[in-house]
Amino acid sequence: MTIVSSPPLAHAAIADPDYSDAYSVDVPPGAATDPAAWTRAIFGRNAFPERAISPTEHLTGDAMPMLDFVASVHVLDGRVTLTTLVRYRNPLGRMYFSVVRPFHRLLVPRMVARGGRKMRDAS
C-alpha cells in the first residue's frame, strides 16, 4: 500500500496539522469512483460527520475539546487515498493521540484495503 496524497478539502480544513498520514489503494476495475461511496465502504456505519464534499473528495471529521481531526477520502487518477489530519488543541489532545496513534497506524491501512475489496465485490 502506497502512502501518498494532497487532498484539497482536507488541507483547507486543517492547513497545519500536528499529525498526518495517508494510505491508498488502486480503484478496482469497474468499481465506483464516488468518494462518498468509498467513505461508506471504508468506515461502514461508523463514518464521522460529513464536513465537505467535492467530485473527487469526501471529508469527514470532528472537533473535540482536545483535538480536531479530518478524514479525507480522495479519488483521483485511479487511486483512492484516505488521509488523516489531526491538530491538537491542548496538551491533553497530544497525550490522547499518542495513545491512539499506534492503533491508528495498524488499523487504517487495513480499513482502506477492506474498503477496496468491498468496492471490487460491489462492481
Score class of each variant (00 low, 15 high):
6 S>C: 06
107 L>A: 15
38 W>M: 02
108 V>Y: 00
42 I>N: 01
46 N>V: 02
46 N>G: 05
77 D>P: 08
3 I>S: 15
57 E>Y: 02
96 Y>S: 11
19 Y>M: 02
51 R>I: 12
18 D>T: 01
61 G>T: 03
99 V>A: 15
77 D>T: 02
108 V>E: 00
92 L>V: 15
1 M>P: 06
87 R>K: 15
52 A>S: 10
27 V>C: 07
83 T>S: 14
109 P>N: 03
99 V>G: 14
117 R>S: 07
37 A>K: 14
59 L>W: 01
67 L>E: 02
88 Y>C: 11
117 R>H: 09
123 S>I: 09
12 A>E: 13
46 N>F: 07
62 D>E: 14
51 R>M: 15
122 A>M: 03
4 V>C: 03
64 M>W: 08
14 I>M: 09
108 V>M: 05
65 P>Y: 02
59 L>V: 06
111 M>S: 10
65 P>T: 03
32 A>R: 11
95 M>W: 13
98 S>Q: 09
11 H>Y: 11
39 T>C: 06
10 A>W: 04
87 R>Y: 02
110 R>V: 12
109 P>D: 06
92 L>T: 13
43 F>N: 06
31 A>F: 01
12 A>G: 13
8 P>Y: 04
20 S>I: 07
50 E>V: 14
101 R>A: 06
76 L>A: 13
78 G>Q: 08
52 A>C: 10
45 R>T: 15
2 T>K: 12
38 W>R: 01
62 D>C: 04
65 P>A: 03
21 D>C: 06
25 V>M: 07
70 V>H: 08
98 S>T: 09
64 M>V: 15
112 V>A: 04
22 A>R: 14
93 G>Q: 05
63 A>K: 11
54 S>Q: 03
9 L>F: 08
71 A>G: 05
77 D>Q: 09
104 H>Q: 09
44 G>D: 12
80 V>C: 09
68 D>H: 12
86 V>N: 02
